[in-house]
Amino acid sequence: MTKVRKKSTALFHIALMAACLICVDTSAQLKSYKNVVEDAQNKMVKIYGAGGFQGLEAYQSGFFISSTGEILTTWSYVLDAEDIVVMLNDGQKLNAKLKGYDPRTEVAILKVEVLNVDYFNLDKAVKLRSGSKVLALSNLYGVATGNEPASVQFGVVSAKTKLSARRGAFDTNYQGSVYVIDAMTNNPGAAGGAITDRRGNLAAIIGKELRSSKNNIWLNFAIPVSEITDSIDAIRSGKIIAQADPKAKLADEPMTVKLMGIVLLPNVVSNTPPFVDRVVRGSVADKAGIRPDDLIIEAAGQLTTSRNALENKLKTIERDTPVKLTIQRGRKFLNIEIDLNK
């Protein structure tokens, strides 16, 4: 009888032990959002620097990318200060040094004297796809102060796209891929925050506040880690990266509609559509088959929404380079190549 009882007790203990083990094991695989968020918040910092006037906030967000105090953040006027102060998740206040920045990708690295901090491992950064659930961590609006942890938002990846699918759509130097998020992530102070997947793996850095000139609305976006690893490596290795030309380079001898032999409809309003008014007889355009009343809707792969847009695009093309035009004639679309060399 005793033996039996012992047996069952032993059995129970083993089962319990096993159960506990499995619990620990599975939670390592799949942490609850609570744990994921707490781990991620621990890697976040609040950054205070220049600003604080004319609606420019003197703060932004950042996160550790090494155990020795390297902080990844967004390059902005906030960092253009004598004293940059960083506040850790536990409320510890430290002075930071600007280690370097890359104006093309608008990222910067700060360094604080601290050891053994939790950090996001860039080598383990993940890629997201449209529909992926994400967490956004930042100090948006500066609502978190002292040892209050960073704010967390939940959303999904709305789209993965080029920030400048059309030139001039957004006023930023960065021209690469972004994740568009369906949560309101890009707010004052949020730039430099972290986007993680639902398991807390770093995926992207929250961008600046940008208004789309395509449809005039605020955009919520983040730059994937894969797009900025070159910048980070260059800053870490001490290379000073020269200021990149943010705008596309203008041609030395640009193409013009006049050279083609095209006279456009007069530019009455800023959005005058690029309708062909006249074609000079015997000109390249004439030979290529362009006719009066044609509407030029694309030049060298860029949609030409207005006469100004067409002319600006041509300014970036050397006149000896052939230009592909897409023409709308009534309901038909025609592809026509203009080559001044011919």
Binding site: A159, K160, D182
Partner: peptide, 12 residues
């Protein structure tokens, strides 16, 4: 489908 003609943008 505003960002990219080749893929949709979504919100859940």
């Amino acid at each position: 489908r505003t960002f990219d003609p080749s893929s949709t943008n979504i919100s859940v």
